[in-house]
Structures are given as C-alpha cells and as structure tokens.
Design a protein around this nucleic acid. Structure first.
Length: 603
RNA sequence: GCCCUUGUAGUUCAAUGGAUAGAACGAGGCUCUUCUAAGGCCUUGAUGUAGGUUCGAUUCCUACCAAGGGCACCA
C-alpha cells in the first residue's frame, strides 16, 4: 500500500525536515503546498528560497543540493519510493511529482473507505448553529434565504468534521413589526376574517400577513396617528391584555411559522430548536437589571449597564475604544435586540451547553454583536469565548428590480419558485414523467440559488443574476448536478456492459502497460484533495472552497469524459476509467451534500 | 467626524506571502454514425492610487481615493 492523501503531506514534510537536518540547515517552518498549476507538480516547497538568504547561498544551488539529498533519503523507504515519481527544481521551488501508483491507490481508498473526505477537526465537540431567523408576521425575504443556505452548509461541513450539530432558529414573535401587521389586519377587518377561513391556502394567508406588515410599516412611518396606535398595540401584545389582538396574534404567528416550515422543507433544513423573542426577552431583562447601576443587591456589584435619558445603556467604548454605546432597555422599559440576545445566549447554554455557539447574520449586525459580545465578556467570559458571529453580505438582484410585477417585494420564497419554474420550463420536453419533472426542477432550482450564494466568500455582497444562476453552463449549481448525472448514466451503462470498476488494479498491471498507453488524468490529480478542501472549509467556516473545488473536478471530469471513451470492452484501462468515474460521482455527491444541494441521478 | 468591511478582465467571482494572477459569462473559431452537445477543445482581456516591509506582495503595514454597513431608544 502506498501512502494516501493526508499522510503524503506529512511524509514529505518529514522527508524535507530530515534532509535539511542532514545538510545542517536549521529550519522548522516547512511550507509544502499544492502549486496552483498542476504542471508544477503535486506538492511544492519554497524552503530553498527562504533558507538561501540566511545561508548566503544561491537559492538554485541550494535547491539542487536539497533535491539530491531528498532523492537519496526517499530511496531508503519503500512507500516513498513507490509514491514519488520525480522531484525537481523549477524557479527556485522544489516540486514533487506523485506517481501513478499513488493515484491508483487513492482511487482505491475512496472506493473502500466510507469515511473518505471526513476529518476530525471538531471530534467530540458540540456545535450549535443559529441561522435563518425569519420573523413571524414578516415575509421570508432574500436575506433569510442567504442565512439559511450558508448556515445549513456550515452545519454540514462542521458535522462532517466530527462535531455534533445542533441547529437553532431564532424568531422575533414580539416587537414593533408584529404590532404593525396586526394594526393593518385590524384596519381591514373584513378581509382579515375572510382570509382566516379554512378554504384559503397557507401561502395566500402568509402573503396576506406579510403584505399587512408592509402596509402597517408604511403607516407607522407616515402617520403620527397610526404610530401611536401601533405603539399601543405593541404594548398590548407584550402583556397579552386584549382578547381580540391575542386572537389575531395567535393566528398570524401560527400561519407564518407553518409557511416557514414549508420553505425549510424545500431548502432541506431541520431545526432542533426554535427560540422566540417572547421567551428570551424577560431573561435578557433580568440579566440587564441585575447588572445595572441601580441594582441594590450587593452581590451584583458590577455596574455594567448605566441609566441614561430614561433608557438603560452599555457604554462599550469604556472597554474598547472601537466600540460604541448602545441602548439595551428603552425608555419605555422594553428590551431591545441587544438585551434579547443576552437572554438568548443564556438559554442556549442552559439547554445545550455547546463547545461552540455560532450565530449567522447579515453584516449589518456585525457592530451590534461586538457590543453585545463585550457586555457578555464582562459578565461571563467563558460563554463569550465560545461565541462566534459569522456575517454574510447582502444580496442584490442584477436586474436592479427588487419588486415583482404585482408590485410586491421580491421575497426569498418568490425567488425559489421563480428559479424552479424556469428549470421546469427548460426540461419540459425531456423524457420524464410529470412527477419526475417536478422533483428535478425543485432539486435543480434550489441548487441554482444555493450555489449562487455559496460559490463566493460569504462576507461579500452578492449580485444575483437569475438567468446565470439557472444556466447549466459554466459556474453554476446545475452544471455540477449535470456532471454528476452524466457520471451516473455512464456507471449505469458500465453495469449493463458488465465492466466493473477495477478495485484491484495491481501495480504489476501498471508496469506491464507501456508508458505511452498510460498517463495520469487531471481528474486523478484533483480527486484525492477532497478531504483537505473540506478540512480547510471547516477551519475557516467557508463553504466556497468546496464550491470552487467541485467546479474544478466537474470541469476535469467533463474533459476526461470528452477526451476518453470510458466504457470500452476492448480497452484494458476501461475498468480503471469506470473506477475514476465512480470516485468522481461519490465525491461530487458528498460535496454537493456539504453545500446543502441534492444530487439527482438523472436530469 | 469616528469604527468595521470591500476595491482584481467588459460582467460575476477565485487566488493558504510565491512561479506565466485562475475560472465562468460575453465575443470568435472547431468538435458527436462514443457513454447526457445542458458537453469538450482553441483564441481574446484585469490587481483603485502612492509609498513601505520582503529574495518575492492581489495578499502584510501607512496614507489617499471609491463603494457598502454601523455610530441612543428598530432588528
């Protein structure tokens, strides 16, 4: 058995270390990387250039000397001898070329090892991930879609890296936005009661509530009278004092939550916890009051929060000049977002006590969270150290339109439907049953959207182009799925032709082949890297490394497909090519899973 | 004004301090009596400005310019 993927890097690093030691060069920080260009080898190190200056030697000469010594040492070990094809100096770099035997053994490894691609970065850790956070009474907008795609992918990646994942959702079921929606629904009492009827669909009901919020919000901003009424309703919602309001509230909350659940089903998310502001708010209030300057009890001597203009605030700039003051309890005695966040954090740790608690939100909340984090750090440094806030950018539509033909705001939901409908239109003439078409267009439509969100660094804003996103060409979710489906179809044919993937492709077989008959395919040089890509994604909480990698292997596979006949009874290489196809399909499926994307076998 | 984030082909995005800065879309050409041509192959083009650190800077540091976000009772 030759060395496989991760071990290879370690072995090579050790080899270089030993070599330097032999040459009496002191250097510990070995950098060994994959060169960007496959022509430059499979691994590459810059030690010669780094050490040359210190030693006052020409880097090229030093590199030659190191290579000579490396070759001598590598010859002593059977595994290295088999795995290394060539070591050479180019532009001062020392490049390592791996052998056919290395690649073949790694193809075998993927086929035999069920855990291929996994790593143990988070072994034994419990990680809670909070994401999506749509608010009852408001539409599921594009930001929620982004948060969901990113949160689900990060959850899966971290889970794949050994963690136990707890998925959490946090929803604002009290507050001004609720009052605005209820205000409008009370104004249109007749419409409201007819929408509440059984016969009206869930989607229509949820739309009605979302639109009521939008109108109520408008009234709040433009009419003093409405503002007063809404503030009054807000208070009544908090203390549940009005029977009529309670009834509409209970109904609206239930309907919008049910509608969200339908969306999660389409997106492929299952939450373990739903936290609500109504539950979290009183806990946060208690925390703030106990740590406020007015607290009389002597055990609460920490005066973190201070009274100011009738509100209770936290002067974060006292602790960190880069932060600022924020209101935690407003002058009406109601908790703000910051206070609720403190309550939420406490509940999370009481219920699950995670080793790491991740919160995913849009970047507009970055500065608030730093202030909340500072307050938390003073009160409970242990919990604060386990919190991680991951922010994502905003999505803009390339068309510039943010509202649909009906004049409604384009919601996350409408974007999903539009995407799926377009795919359905594209595949309408294909040879599938209506049921299959429905399933495929759902899987592909959602993939198109999710991929558009995940293909780039999550911190930046996204310009969403619906046409490009659903395109099956180039850099898209459907392109990845198409490549997978194509591989599946080849494997199906292989089965019919009875060409089985060769699991035992013996070293003697390779040697008996003339070198002209055998060359290492680009796809082979990429497949074994899957696990290190996943590990890096997990370490940096960055799904886009996986997305980019999948495009790379899809392209390499399609080139392999385009330039080779895979199923060919007269070709002794055919079983091995089938094996490569099988490995590609398995890695693509796993990779798509990590992005939260389904992999249909036909499309 | 202060703080955070971001400036890369015409456009949308990559690039763990490294090699000739990669893709995709767009444009032009070629390609299937072979497994999904929704594919493949070829051609075309970019690091905001000015310094600094380094053998080497898109990456790190400083200043400037530009965009987005935050800066007291919304979330």
């Amino acid at each position: 058995m030759v060395i496989k993927d991760k071990l290879m890097k370690e072995k090579l690093e050790n080899l270089i270390k030993e070599t330097l030691k032999n040459l009496q060069i002191e250097f510990s920080d070995i950098s060994l990387e994959h060169p960007a260009d496959l022509k430059m080898g499979d691994y590459s190190t810059n030690v010669a250039m780094v050490c040359a200056k210190k030693l006052g030697i020409n880097p090229k000469e030093l590199a030659e000397k190191i290579v000579e010594e490396v070759n001598k040492r590598a010859a002593l070990f059977e595994d290295l001898r088999a795995a290394l094809n060539n070591v050479e100096v180019k532009n001062g770099f020392i490049n390592f070329y791996l052998s056919q035997e290395f690649f073949i053994d790694n193809i075998k490894d993927v086929l035999e090892n069920k855990n291929f691609g996994k790593n143990n970065l988070f072994n034994g850790k419990k990680v809670m991930v909070e994401y999506t956070q749509p608010n009852p009474f408001k539409p599921f907008h594009i930001g929620h879609l982004m948060s969901n795609a990113i949160g689900e992918s990060i959850s899966r990646i971290v889970e794949f890296s050994g963690a136990k994942i707890v998925r959490a959702n946090y929803q604002g079921d009290v507050g001004p936005h609720v009052a605005k929606a209820i205000y409008q629904m009370l104004k249109n009492e007749n419409d409201t009661s007819s929408v509440m009827a059984e016969s009206v669909s869930l989607v229509e009901k949820a739309d009605y509530i979302g639109n009521s919020y939008a109108k109520g919000n408008d009234a709040y901003e433009n009419y003093e009278e409405a503002k007063k009424e809404i503030d009054e309703i807000n208070r009544k919602v908090y203390n549940k004092s009005d029977k009529n309001i309670n009834e509409i509230y209970d109904w609206g909350r239930r309907i919008t939550l049910e509608a969200f659940e339908e969306i999660y089903k389409v997106l492929g998310t299952n939450f373990n916890y739903y936290f609500f502001e109504s539950i979290v708010a009183p806990i946060g209030l208690k925390i703030v009051h106990e740590n406020c300057e007015s607290a009389e009890s002597p055990e609460h001597s920490r005066r973190i929060f201070e009274k100011s203009d009738g509100a209770i605030v936290f002067h974060a700039e006292k602790y960190d000049s880069k932060l600022h003051t924020r209101v935690f309890i407003n002058s009406k005695g109601l908790p703000t977002y910051e206070t609720k966040e403190l309550g939420l954090t406490q509940i999370k740790f009481e219920k699950e006590n995670p080793d790491l608690s991740i919160v995913i939100t849009a970047n507009e909340q970055e500065e608030y969270m730093k202030v909340v984090g500072k307050a938390l750090e003073i009160m409970n440094p242990e919990i604060a150290s386990k919190m991680k806030h991951i922010v994502h950018g905003m999505m803009r539509l390339s068309s510039g339109k943010m509202s649909s033909r009906k004049g409604n705001v384009i919601t996350g939901e409408s974007l999903i439907i539009e995407s799926c409908d377009k795919i359905l239109e594209k595949i309408k003439d294909r040879d599938f049953t209506d049921e299959e078409k429905e399933q495929i267009s759902n899987d592909v439509g959602v993939a198109a959207l999710k991929y558009s969100i995940l293909k780039q660094n999550i911190g930046g804003n996204i310009i969403y182009d619906a046409e490009k996103s659903i395109s099956f060409e180039g850099d898209s979710g459907p392109y990845l799925q198409y490549s997978y489906a194509r591989a599946c179809s080849i494997l199906e044919k292989a089965k019919i032709e009875n060409i089985l993937p060769s699991l035992v492709f013996l070293r003697s077989d390779i040697k008996s082949l003339k070198s002209s008959d055998f060359h290492i395919f680009e796809i082979e040089k990429l497949l074994y890297r899957f696990s290190e890509i996943v590990e890096r994604s997990a370490k940096e909480f960055a799904p886009h490394y996986i997305a980019n990698y999948l495009v790379d292997i899809a392209r390499a596979f399609n080139a392999f497909y385009g330039n080779n006949k895979i199923i060919d009874k007269d070709d002794s290489m055919s079983p091995y090519k089938v094996a490569i196809t099988l490995v590609f399909s398995s890695i693509m499926k796993n990779g798509l899973y990590l992005l939260g994307i389904k992999a249909p076998e036909r499309m």
